Simulated scan of single mutants.
Amino acid sequence: MKKIILVSVIVVIIGALGFATLKLAQDGFDISVENETNKKVSGLYLTYDNIKLDIKIPSIAPSEKYTLNVNPNENFDEASLKLEYKDTKGNLQTEYVIGYFEKGYSGKAVINIKSVDEMGKLKVEINSNTSLY
C-alpha cells in the first residue's frame, strides 16, 4: 500500500513539473513570418494597444522566415496583435495576427506572405491560436 501511495505522489509531482515547464515555455506569442514570394520584404512591424515601441521585423529574403516571441508586459486590459506596414503610396496597411488577447494569454501565429502587388500591398495568410494559460 505504501508503494502505491509513493508512486502516486511521484506521478503527481512529475505531472506538475511537466505542466509548469510547458506553461513557462508558452509565455507570450511565438510568431513566425514566412516570405513565400520571390522578393525581399521589409518595413514590417507588429503592434498592439499601449505598446511602448512597435516591434520591427527585419527584412526577410525570398523563401526565408523570421521568428520571434512577443510577450506583452504593458498595462492594458485587452488588445489585438497587428502586422502593419506602408504600401508604395505611404498608406498604412494592417493585418490582424491575433484578433483578441488579454494579459497572460499565450499562443502562436504563422504569417505567410504569399505575394506583393505593384502597389506594395501584401497578400498574407495568417494562422493563429491562443490560450488563456
Rank of each mutant, 00 (worst) to 15 (best):
I4Q: 10
L6E: 10
L6G: 01
L6N: 04
V11Y: 06
V12M: 15
I13L: 15
I13Y: 05
I13D: 10
I14W: 04
G18M: 03
K23C: 05
D27S: 04
G28P: 03
D30L: 06
S32V: 13
V33T: 09
V33L: 03
E34W: 01
E34Y: 11
E34K: 13
E34A: 12
T37G: 05
K39T: 15
K39C: 07
K40L: 14
S42T: 13
L46K: 04
Y48I: 09
D49W: 07
I51L: 14
I51Q: 06
D54Q: 09
I55S: 10
I55F: 11
I57P: 00
P58Q: 02
P58A: 09
P62T: 10
P62G: 07
P62M: 08
S63W: 02
E64V: 04
E64F: 10
K65V: 00
T67H: 07
T67S: 15
T67R: 09
L68F: 03
N69W: 02
N69H: 08
N69M: 09
N69E: 04
V70S: 03
V70A: 02
V70I: 15
V70P: 00
S80F: 03
S80H: 02
L81E: 13
L81P: 08
L83N: 03
L83E: 05
Y85E: 04
Y85N: 04
D87L: 05
D87R: 06
D87E: 06
T88H: 14
G90M: 09
G90L: 11
G90P: 08
L92T: 13
L92C: 05
T94D: 07
E95Y: 10
E95D: 12
V97P: 08
I98V: 14
Y100G: 03
E102S: 12
G104H: 12
Y105Q: 02
Y105A: 07
S106G: 15
S106H: 12
S106A: 12
S106P: 09
G107Q: 06
K108N: 14
A109V: 00
A109I: 00
I111D: 02
I111E: 01
I111P: 02
N112W: 04
N112Y: 11
I113Q: 03
I113A: 02
K114R: 13
S115D: 14
V116S: 08
K121P: 00
K123R: 08
K123G: 09
V124L: 02
N127S: 14
N129A: 08
T130I: 15
S131V: 08
L132Q: 05
Y133M: 13
Y133H: 06
